[in-house]
Computed example of a mutant assay.
Amino acid sequence: MSTAEHGWWRGLAGLTLALLVIAGCGQEAPQRVVVIYTAVDQPVAEPILKEFERTTGIRLEIRYDAEQTKTAGLAHRLEAEKDNPRADVWWSNEVFHTIALANKGILAPYESPAAANIPAKYKDKRHRWAATALRARVIGVHTQLPEGVRITGLRDLENPALKGKIAMAMPAAGTTSGHVAAMYALWGPQEFERYMAALRDNQMKLLGGNAVVAEHVGRGVLLAGLTDNDDVSATLKNGGKIVQVLPDQGDGGIGTLAIPCSVGLVAGRANDDAKRLVDYLLSPQVEAKMLEAKFAGYSVFAAEGELAVKTMAVDYADVSAAMPVAVETALRILQGR
C-alpha cells in the first residue's frame, strides 16, 4: 500500500470515528424508569403519580389492582415474583398485606426522611414500610330506614328489622379482610364466631367490593353495609341516598378500624429513583391530595378535630397475623360451609 493510500485509509477511519462520537453525543441518555404496583384506586393514584413524573423526569410503569381482588391480587403477585422481582415500589390502600409482605422478606428496609414525623404506630420499626392517609371502615346507611331502626355500631347490623338488607364485600380481599381480622383480634375467636353467625342469620350478603356495597345502599337495594369512607363519598357524588356512620364512636364504643395507605421498597430492586418515589408518596402533600380526593378520610397526624376518629385498640401486626384464620372463619360461617 502506498503512503498516499495509507493516509487515505487513516483519514477515513478518523472521520468514521468522529461521526460515531458525534452521533453518540446526540443520543439522549436512557430514561429512568421505576415500576410501581399500587392498590390505590386509579382515579386517585394516577394524577399523584403523573405529578411525580412531571416534577422529577422519572418515568413510572404502573400496575393497578382490580376491585374484585383489591390489594390481595398484587400482594400475591409480589410473593410469586419474590425470586425475580419486577416492581420497585409497593403502594397499598391498606397496611395488613404490606406487613405480611415485609415479614416474608419481600420489602426492603429504607428509613425515608419523609417518615420521620409519622407517628410510630403508622410505620415499621425496621423501616420496611410507613403509612399515611387514613381510610376508615364505616357503615353506609340508606337515608330512609324503617321506623325505630337506628344504626350506630357493628352490632346494630344484627337487628332483625334489617334482615336480608345488609351486606359487606367478600372478606377475602381489600380492606374487608383487614376489618374482619381486626374484629377477630379484638374480640377473640368465640365472640367473633358468634357475630359472624348473627350476620349470617340476618342474611348478610357478600358482594364484589366495597364500592358495590355502597352503590347498593345508595340505590335502596340494601339498607346498610360495611364499606370504606371513600366508597360512601363516591356514591354520594353520584346521587346515592346514603349517609356515612363511623361505628362505635360513643362512650364505651370499640371505635372503628382506621386503615392507612402504606408504602415500601421491594427487596432486590431498591435504587435512588425508587427511594425518591417512596419519599414523595409519604409526604404530607400527597396525603393532602388523598384527603382532598376523599379517598382518605383522616390524617395520621391528626389527634383531634374533624380529621380524627376513635379507632379500634388493635395492633396492625396482630391484625395482619390474624387475617388468614379470620378470613377463613368468616367465609365458612357467612357462606354456611
Rank of each mutant, 00 (worst) to 15 (best):
161 A>G: 05
161 A>I: 02
161 A>D: 07
161 A>E: 08
162 L>C: 13
163 K>W: 05
163 K>R: 15
164 G>V: 05
165 K>R: 14
167 A>P: 08
168 M>F: 08
169 A>K: 08
170 M>D: 12
170 M>F: 15
171 P>V: 01
171 P>K: 04
172 A>I: 12
173 A>D: 12
173 A>Y: 15
173 A>W: 14
174 G>N: 00
175 T>D: 13
176 T>Q: 13
177 S>Q: 13
177 S>A: 12
177 S>M: 08
177 S>T: 07
178 G>Y: 06
179 H>D: 09
179 H>L: 14
180 V>S: 13
180 V>G: 14
180 V>N: 14
181 A>Q: 13
181 A>F: 14
181 A>I: 14
182 A>S: 13
182 A>Q: 13
182 A>L: 13
183 M>N: 03
183 M>Y: 02
183 M>P: 03
183 M>W: 06
184 Y>A: 02
184 Y>K: 03
184 Y>R: 04
185 A>I: 01
185 A>F: 01
185 A>Q: 06
186 L>C: 07
186 L>F: 11
186 L>S: 12
186 L>V: 04
187 W>Q: 01
188 G>V: 03
188 G>T: 03
188 G>S: 08
188 G>C: 04
189 P>L: 08
189 P>H: 05
190 Q>N: 11
190 Q>D: 10
190 Q>Y: 01
191 E>D: 13
191 E>I: 02
192 F>E: 02
192 F>G: 04
193 E>G: 03
193 E>D: 13
193 E>P: 06
194 R>E: 09
194 R>H: 12
195 Y>N: 02
196 M>R: 11
196 M>K: 06
196 M>L: 11
